[in-house]
Write a protein that binds this DNA or RNA. Structure first.
Length: 226
DNA sequence: GCATTAACCACAG
DNA sequence: CTGTGGTTAATGC
C-alpha cells in the first residue's frame, strides 16, 4: 500500500483526528508504514520496543509465549492501536503480534506519542477510552473463559468472528485449529471435534476454511449455556 | 460407582 | 495442519 501522509490518511484513528495540524505534521515525520503478508511477524516478544503500532488495515493476533504453548491474547482488527501497554509499561515487548491477513501497520515513535498525550487532552482522552474498552473486554473474556465449557467458548468465538470481525454470517476463518485452541485455552483436538460436531449438527457449515453460520439461534444457545 | 468432559498421545492422511 | 481413536484424570450425580 502506498504511504499517504498522516494529514490526509483515510485510515486515520479517531484519536489522531483531534491532533492539531502541527501535531499531525510531527506524527508524519515520526512514523513509518510497513506492509505484512499473512503469517508475517509484526513484532516479537522480548524485543526492545520503541514504537507504538497502529494497525491501519488487516487483522492480527497478539500472542504470548509461555512455558509450553502460545496463548493468543486477543485478535485485533484494523483500525486500532496496539502495543501501547507493552511500550508504555515496559521497554521490552511482553507479547508478539502476527498478521492473520495481509496487514498494513504504522510504527510511531513512542516519544512523539507521549508528547501528544502530554500536550493534547483530547488525544489523551481518546487513547484512555481505547484502553478502557480493551480492559473491559479482557475482563469479560476472562470470566467467560473460566465459566464456560469448551463448546461454549468455540461457539462464542465463531460468533465473535461473524459479528465483530467480518460482520457477516459466512467468512473464511483465519485461524488454524491450533490457533483457535490457543485463543480459547483448549486443545487442538477438542476444538477440531467440536467444530465437526457443529457441522454435522447443522449449526454451521464447513467448506475448507470457510465457515457459514447456519443455525444462529442454536449457536447462540451453545455460546450462552456453555 | 458411573457418566461426562476434555486433555494428552500416537498415528494417518 | 487436521481428524480419529484410545487412554486417563477430574468432576458431578
Amino acid at each position: 500500500m502506498e504511504k499517504s501522509p498522516c494529514t490526509t490518511c483515510h485510515f486515520i484513528s479517531k484519536a489522531a483526528r483531534v491532533l492539531t495540524d502541527v501535531e499531525l505534521e510531527t506524527l508524519e515525520s515520526k512514523c513509518a508504514q510497513v506492509s505484512y503478508r499473512k503469517g508475517e511477524v509484526i513484532f516479537k516478544q522480548d524485543a526492545l520496543s520503541t514504537n507504538i503500532i497502529y494497525i491501519k488495515t488487516g487483522l492480527i493476533k497478539l500472542h504470548m509465549a509461555s512455558k509450553n504453548r502460545d496463548q493468543i491474547i486477543k485478535i485485533v482488527k484494523a483500525p486500532a492501536y496496539t502495543g501501547i501497554p507493552t511500550t508504555f509499561a515496559e521497554n521490552i515487548n511482553q507479547y508478539s503480534a502476527t498478521a492473520l491477513q495481509d496487514t498494513v501497520a504504522c510504527f510511531i515513535d513512542v516519544n512523539a506519542f507521549k508528547t501528544f498525550i502530554n500536550n493534547n487532552g483530547d488525544f489523551a482522552f481518546e487513547i484512555i477510552i481505547n484502553l478502557c474498552q480493551d480492559s473491559l473486554e479482557n475482563y469479560k473474556r476472562c470470566v467467560n473463559r473460566n465459566q464456560k465449557k469448551t463448546p461454549g467458548r468455540v461457539a462464542e468465538t465463531l460468533l465473535f468472528f461473524a459479528e465483530k470481525i467480518f460482520d457477516r454470517e459466512e467468512f473464511e476463518f483465519p485461524l488454524s485449529r491450533n490457533d483457535l485452541a490457543d485463543l480459547i485455552c483448549s486443545s487442538r483436538e477438542s476444538v477440531s471435534r467440536i467444530i465437526n460436531d457443529f457441522n454435522t449438527d447443522g449449526l454451521i457449515s464447513l467448506e475448507g476454511k470457510n465457515i457459514a453460520i447456519k443455525n444462529r439461534k442454536l449457536l447462540e444457545q451453545v455460546a450462552k449455556n456453555g
